[in-house]
Design a protein around this nucleic acid. Structure first.
Lengths: 205, 205
DNA sequence: TATACAGCGTGGTCAGACCACTGTCGGAAT
DNA sequence: ATTCCGACAGTGGTCTGACCACGCTGTATA
């Protein structure tokens, strides 16, 4: 009982791998030790190491390449999304939930942008948008960056990948509505911002 | 190239397990076949089966009990939460993000409740709340139920577990503010609802 | 009848083997 | 000297068999 962490070797391995990553200052894209080396360094069987790695892989935190090695990954949409989408989304209601939730999250992001009130960057981004085209994904990634909330970022990434994997109809691209949304953000009125968002998403006139 | 799913046996196993669950109509708490039986039925090595199961376990979708078996799990806060919290939440800013995001989600849930406008259930719940005490968690679980969005439910579960694991100060329990929030919901004015929520969370006077 | 024990099935772990794939390094051909 | 190609070492992917620890259950015993 003294050792709370007695059970689940592979969980311990996951923690040690994390410690290793932090201590060695490994960054995204870096290679982590091979399975055999980890097995030796941690004094556990290779199969246990693999169980830990497979779990991390499914979470999207690492990426394994046969013949090359295992690498830290820029955790975004991944196996987890695919998996959850098949496990969770088994009916049409669930799909609607994804759509609704994604839109709630996007509106929350816009509220965050309003809170931060980083006028300069919004103006800068507006100029960029005038000169070149950006995809819907790029637009909201920018919004989330302006909102400066990493957790919200991760949630949005997952949900938007969910959404795309569900094959809803893809709305046509309309730059003017994005510009209008940015203008509303500069105005600073939440209701106007949300109204512009809903227009963008074709949810109101 | 015809077989897209060629690589990653353990991913295939995960999918097959899911199929098995659906076809056999297994429910939460039910036992799934043993590792050895799965190994035989799917014609793969037991270690591959284990890799798939460990991944599912880390996701919180199953629960393994030594000497008993493997069971479908009521997927709520779990290893995934613990793990992500150590992987992601490495600075104070991240903790603030959790707090902010959780509150955004909760407000979104309240907006959903407003949309559904299920007056009867709100009134019913209000009477319950008058007679007995409910925890903050129970209160918002009810709100999410009224919002009727399972995905939002899952997100909230994860975030609230995150939040609790971060050891923020626990605000005192104040039943009157919960009642006021319910009354606002019955009124149907979003601004009033959100105002009451912020009072509940001590974010405004 | 009530208790204790042995056996069986389960997950947990390890070691070793083999395969497929990748990058490299040196030798051979040009 | 340069280019090309094949052997080789390292890596992940998978399978097998073995043993342990634990929980349950049925039976034999007190």
């Amino acid at each position: 009982m003294n050792k709370e962490a007695s059970n689940k070797v592979y969980i311990e391995i996951v923690k040690k791998i994390r410690t290793m990553i932090v201590e060695d200052g490994l960054k995204i894209g870096d290679k982590i030790p091979s399975e055999r080396e980890l097995s030796e360094r941690l004094q556990v069987g290779r199969s246990s190491v693999r169980e830990a790695l497979r779990a991390l892989e499914l979470l999207g935190l690492i990426e394994t390449r046969r013949g090359e090695g295992t690498f830290l990954r820029d955790a975004r949409g991944n196996q987890l999304v695919q998996l959850l989408s098949t496990f969770i989304l088994q009916d049409e209601k669930a799909k609607e939930d994804v759509k609704d939730t994604l839109q709630f999250i996007e509106m929350d992001c816009l509220r965050l942008v309003l809170q931060r009130n980083n006028v300069e960057q919004i103006v800068s981004f507006r100029k960029t948008l005038e000169s070149i085209n950006v995809s819907d994904e790029e637009f909201f990634l920018k919004m989330i960056e302006l909102g400066d909330n990493h957790l919200m970022y991760r949630i949005w990434i997952i949900l938007s990948n969910f959404y795309r994997s569900l094959n809803f109809q893809e709305e046509p691209y309309s730059k003017s509505k994005y510009l209008a949304l940015l203008d509303a953000l500069l105005l600073g009125d939440e209701n106007v911002v949300l109204d512009k968002y809903l227009q963008l998403r074709k949810l109101s006139t």
